[in-house]
Amino acid sequence: MQTLQSLQYEELHSHYNRYLSPFLPYNLKDRYTDRIILPEAIGNGSISRTRLRPGMEVIMADFQITDDHIMHLHGNLPMVDLTFWIQGNIEISHSGIQEQISAGLGHLTFGQEEQIELKYTAHEAFAICEVRLATALFDAFMDELGLARYTYSAILDGRLNCMFSQSILPKVQTILQDMRSHPFAGPLRKMFLEGKTLELLALCFQHTLLEDEAPSQRRTGRLRKDDIERVREAGRILQQRMEQPPSLLELSRLAGISDSKLKFGFRELYGTTVFGYLKEKRLDKAKELLETERINVCDAALMVGYSNPSHFAAIFKERFGSNPREWIIESRRL
């Protein structure tokens, strides 16, 4: 006889299939993973869903579509959803509100979907990682951690939905990169992804739920709203001028914020220093150039602000686990 908990787990795992119906049938379906290769008439790329354990699954999507596409989500299945928007900009409509979601954001959501529209733009590359937890499993995790006060229902506190938003931290970026490029298949793939998913959950729960006494409080509450926007503007300036970045004092002047608040704000929003953030963005851009523009290592280094190719190669390997030339060879095999 099935328990209420096991029925809830089965419902979670069957829930996602309805939204994949335009792309079915599955091209790969094994004991753990369902994988869809998009038909040429729709676009290119793939969507995979791996059942990691009862009540926990991870969806990895890397794709482009030929025409603009709207995905309608509607349902009343309660769940905990952790989504990372790695690449591509998506317009979301919910409860009469339109919101533009940019790459580099993560959302931890408690509640049910209700009526949501996701608008994908034709020919834009999208990369998304989504972790879904059944509410019973989330409560079991909190109980194991001695944090039973942070139950699913306590976090919602009578609301239909509750969402925590944050920029993707460098540590999280590294985990996501590992999840998107690894050598494992079958049961080892499931084991690897489960370990990485638990790392994501631990970092996310620590940063959103557990840093303050009450689950409704946010770390960014220590900064005023206008200060947060100025810190984000500083981040945009660094990305636009990574080849010749401004000094810390010039950056603070351009963003309209004191240098002490700027340093504090980067720690709060991005979990790193100002120039730690610049380093991460430079390396991400360099990797993108090597993969998509097919330029040589020296040119990629110069384009993101590194005049010493040897230094660039060393920090690239430290970040991604292989040097730039090895990365080029591997990316062109895919």
Rank of each mutant, 00 (worst) to 15 (best):
S21M: 12
T292Y: 11
Y306M: 03
K279C: 04
M163L: 00
K317F: 05
A202R: 10
I92G: 01
F264A: 02
E114N: 03
R230M: 02
F23I: 04
R35Y: 02
E11P: 02
L108G: 10
R222W: 10
M163Q: 07
Q8R: 15
L251R: 12
Q173A: 06
L210F: 14
P215K: 15
S14M: 10
E144H: 01
G235L: 02
F164G: 01
L254I: 07
H15C: 10
L249E: 05
G195V: 05
P170D: 03
R51S: 13
I328Q: 12
L289D: 00
I70S: 11
E113W: 06
H13Q: 14
L262P: 03
L278M: 14
M56Y: 03
G235A: 06
S310F: 12
P187R: 09
I295P: 02
P187Y: 09
N76K: 14
G146P: 06
M179W: 09
S310A: 13
E124S: 00
Y120E: 00
I37W: 15
G276N: 07
L82P: 00
L82T: 07
E326W: 15
S167I: 13
V172E: 10
A301E: 06
E318W: 13
Y306C: 00
F84K: 06
I328H: 10
E280M: 14
S167G: 04
S102N: 05
L201K: 01
L201I: 01
V297N: 01
F164V: 04
L289W: 00
I92D: 02
G276V: 08
S102G: 02
E194Q: 05
R224Y: 12
L283G: 09
G75C: 03
T135W: 06
E40T: 14
L176S: 12
R319S: 07
Q64V: 08
G271D: 09
N296F: 10
M179L: 12
A148Q: 11
Y9S: 04
R267T: 11
N323W: 13
L198W: 07
T174G: 03
A125G: 01
S331F: 08
F138G: 13
F205I: 04
A234C: 09
Q244E: 15
L201Y: 02
D81R: 07
F110S: 07
A286V: 15
T135R: 07
E40K: 14
V274N: 06
R189L: 09
T197Q: 02
V80N: 02
E291P: 01
Q87D: 15
T3E: 03
D157M: 05
I36P: 04
T151Q: 11
T292I: 06
A154I: 03
L105K: 15
I70R: 06
V131F: 03
M191G: 02
C162V: 05
V172M: 08
Q217K: 15
Y16H: 11
F141R: 13
L28N: 06
G43V: 10
E326V: 03
E57Y: 08
M60V: 09
I86G: 01
H74R: 09
T292S: 12
A134K: 04
I90C: 09
Q112W: 08
C162L: 09
P187I: 10
S260K: 07
F141S: 00
Q2A: 08
G195Q: 11
F264R: 13
L156T: 05
R224W: 08
E10Q: 14
I329W: 10
Q112H: 11
E213R: 07
H69N: 01
T66V: 11
A134C: 14
H207E: 14
